[in-house]
Structure formats: structure tokens, C-alpha cells
Design a binder for these strands. Structure first.
Lengths: 247, 247
DNA sequence: ACCTGAACACCGTTCAAGT
DNA sequence: ACCTGAACACCGTTCAAGT
């Protein structure tokens, strides 16, 4: 039984490489595609190697270890963030840049948890942070206030926030569902009140009815408006005796 | 070679149980202590079992799997948060409660990343969120605004934030250090400018000179002040045409 | 009926043997 | 010199064998 050849003559002396040779770029892009399709929890050095048709050890030629692979995947996503718009007011420019980051992450939902788990910042990541700080500084915001603003943004500078309303799966049986609802309303009255208001469409408390984009922009604007207000007031760091840092 | 006995006679028929029998409580507390001492990355079902002097399978009697073990560890930490102070203004009360959460987490630095990785909320966690919402609502803040405030707080409601300034280890050799500094100043001028200001003490950009407690309170106050301002203005959710959710 | 050792199906990474 | 299969030291979890 002979395997049909693609195009090579039968007497070629050197074996044809199965694919274009690996390089760091190809490894990282394949890892991103793999995580997009199969989820980050399915990504292992072994599974990625298999997808690329190579032996696991071959990957270690291009990334030192799995941590560096994940660093590189973050680089790919962060490197795809749209550049800043020139000429806008600093608040609008920061807002736009962060929403651009959010858009870049939108297609790679694994990136949120991977970014949070990084301990080393790659050049691409530092570049993004540097450019974001640059927007504040160019707008006249003091280095000190810019520093605190970056801390206040936290992971939100990357365009995402950790979801804080884990929604327990409601049982399919409607009777059990209303029983669960009644119990929840008794034990957690405020959660149920707020969840009910949040998802007026179907009225179910666990409907996951939150408009994530709205929530993100709401919090981002509260932070940026707060920083803007402090900037207008000529804020400087208060002395050690004061009650609240941003009073 | 005989092992000296503690106190038992030599002819006791039934073997003495090595320790007090396991229960869920003891398993969780041991896991917390283990993570405190050895770090969360060293905690495995096997290492925890060894610490307790039992076979790994014995743990599965008290927790269904490792995820549930981690859920339980979060319960221990969250359950230790001081109760809310009665009678204070809602903003002060929320502030105090979140700083109490921060204090409970302070001795368990693994808890930040474990909380972020949870997908199911345990009753203790729901109870904390419910009581925090209750403070807003009792203060007259609308359910809608409270909802968005909780989203805006995000993981900050648990008293921590993801650090966003990963500090690359500066080389010990002073010559290499200043070379690295020069290169960083050229590539990331704004980061270096801000890092230099942030750590005036030693002047080194990678000194990790941030006052984390100050940064946390700063951001928390920006958020709470922003919510308070919207509350005073009688904020309601804007229509679909408007530019910014919290303008 | 209860407990648990061995096994299973994985990991990331090392290393020496083979070409 | 280069590549890679097997091995190492782990995981979480299952399961059947032993008492």
C-alpha cells in the first residue's frame, strides 16, 4: 500500500519536511488558535505539539517552557490592540484605547485569565502600558495621579473585569426552580432583588441578564471621571494624617 | 528495633486511630494552613493528604474534588471577614467592610488568585455579597445603581486588586543595572518616569516602591465617591443613544 | 461495609540514545 | 550536530482488591 505523493518525484534523496519549519511566531499563533477553539484548559505542550504535527520536545526549541508560551500568547493578543488616536482629549483617548483592548480580547476569552496569571511583563505589554501612561501625561495629568490611575484601572486597562456574579445553574424542572428561587429570596434578599431588576426581560434571577459591555463602560467612566475631577482640583497626595486618599 | 509508644499498653486489641477523625472542617483548615506555609502551587490532594497523615483517597470523603476543596478554602477566608458596622453612612460602611475583607485576606496571599479562579459561589460568598448590597440599599442607593456599583468594584469587593506593574528583577551587577535602566528609559519613558516618582526613597525604577494599601484605598474611594455623586444626582440608566453610561 | 493500594490517564520537562 | 523516544517525577481521580 503506497501513500500518494503530493508533487515530489519518487527518487528525491532528502526527505521533504512535513510542513514549513517551526518558528516562535508559528508556535504562538497555533497556540492562540488552539485556545480559541478548544479552550485554555485543553492547551498543553503535548496537545499543541500534536496539533502542529511535531513531537512535544520540538516546542522547547522556540519557547523555554509553558510559562513563556503563555507569555507569548498574551503578546499576540496585546500586540493586536489598535494604536491610540491622536489629537483627542486624554480622557476620550484613554477610553478609546481601553475599549480597543477590549475588542482585541473579545475573540480570545481565555486571554483574561492568562493575563491575570502572568508574573513577567513582555516588551509588548510594557509598550501598551507605556503608551497608556503617555496619554495621561500628554494631557497634563501629573505623573503621580497617572500612577494611581493606572493602579485604579488594574486589569481593566486590558479591557476586561473579573465577573463577580457567579450564576448557579437553575434546575430545568420548573417546580424545583421556583423552590430554589424562594429559598434564594429568603437567604439572599438583596442579591435576588438586584438580579431581578437587572434582567427585566425574562424575570429570572439567574438569567445572566447583565449587559457586560454596559457594566464595563460604566465602571471605566466612573474611574476616568474621578481621575479627571481630581486632576481639575489640582490633587496631590495627602499627608499621612488624612482619612481618605482621594477625598 | 522497637518504636517507643506514647501511652498505650502493648496488648490493646483495636488499633488506636492516629489522629482525631477527619471531617470537612479539619480538611479545609489544614489546606488553608498548608497554603499559607507552602504556597498554593504546592497544594495538591496528595501533599495535603500527606500533611494530614492519611491516604489521598481519604480526602474524597469530605470534598468531592479539588475544585470543592478550593471553594471550601475560600469559604474559610471569607467567613472570617468582620461583620458590618451598624449605623454608619453607607459609603463609610461599605468602605469599612471591604477593608475588613482586605485584612482577612492579608494573611492568606494565595486567596486572591483562588477567589479569581472560582466558578461557583458558595453560600458564605453569596452571604458576603448580599450583605454588601444590603448596605447600599439601606443607604437609599437604588437597586440599579447598587448593581452597577458591585460590578464596578469587581474583585475589589474582596479587598484586593491584581497588581499591574510586574517588576522585572534588576540585575545585581550595578553596571548591568544602569545599562538596563538606560535601555528601559529609552524604550518605556513614561513607565520609568512614573516608577521613579513612585519610589522616591531609593530612586530605583524597579524598587517595588508602591504603597499597595494607599493604591487600594485610592481606587476604592474614587469608585465610591463616583457612585455617591451619581446617587446624589438621581442617576438612572441612560437611553441607548447616549455616549457614556455614567456621564 | 469499609478502606486503600495500585492503576489510569494525564501533565511539564529532562536526558540519553539513536541517526 | 541534531533530533526525539523513553523516562522521570509529578498530577487528580477511578476502581477493584483486600480486610
Amino acid at each position: 500500500m503506497t501513500v500518494p505523493d503530493d508533487d515530489a518525484g519518487p527518487s528525491r534523496p532528502t526527505p521533504i519536511p512535513r510542513r514549513t519549519p517551526l518558528n516562535r511566531e508559528r508556535v504562538l499563533r497555533a497556540a492562540v488558535v488552539f485556545a480559541d477553539r478548544s479552550g485554555i484548559e485543553a492547551l498543553s505542550m503535548r496537545s499543541l505539539a500534536q496539533q502542529l504535527g511535531v513531537v512535544p520536545m520540538a516546542l522547547y526549541k522556540h519557547v523555554a517552557n509553558k510559562e513563556e508560551l503563555l507569555d507569548g500568547m498574551v503578546e499576540v493578543v496585546v500586540g493586536a490592540i489598535d494604536p491610540p488616536t491622536r489629537g483627542a482629549h486624554w480622557k476620550a483617548a484613554v477610553r478609546q484605547r481601553i475599549l480597543a483592548a477590549r475588542q482585541s480580547l473579545a475573540h480570545h476569552c481565555w486571554a483574561c485569565q492568562v493575563i491575570q496569571s502572568r508574573t513577567h511583563a513582555s516588551p509588548v505589554v510594557l509598550e501598551y502600558m507605556d503608551s497608556l501612561m503617555g496619554i495621561f501625561l500628554a494631557g497634563g495629568v501629573s505623573a503621580e495621579l497617572t500612577h494611581h490611575a493606572m493602579h485604579a484601572l488594574g486589569t481593566r486597562m486590558w479591557g476586561f473585569t473579573q465577573e463577580v456574579f457567579p450564576t448557579p445553574e437553575p434546575p430545568a424542572d420548573p417546580e424545583a426552580r421556583s423552590a430554589m428561587f424562594a429559598q434564594a429570596a429568603a437567604q439572599y434578599p438583596h442579591i435576588v432583588e438586584i438580579a431581578t431588576i437587572a434582567s427585566r426581560d425574562d424575570g429570572s434571577p439567574a438569567g445572566g441578564g447583565c449587559d457586560e459591555q454596559f457594566e464595563f463602560e460604566f465602571a471605566l467612566d466612573v474611574l476616568l471621571n474621578g481621575v479627571e475631577r481630581l486632576h481639575r482640583l489640582g490633587w496631590t497626595r495627602p499627608g499621612p494624617g488624612s482619612r481618605s486618599p482621594s477625598g
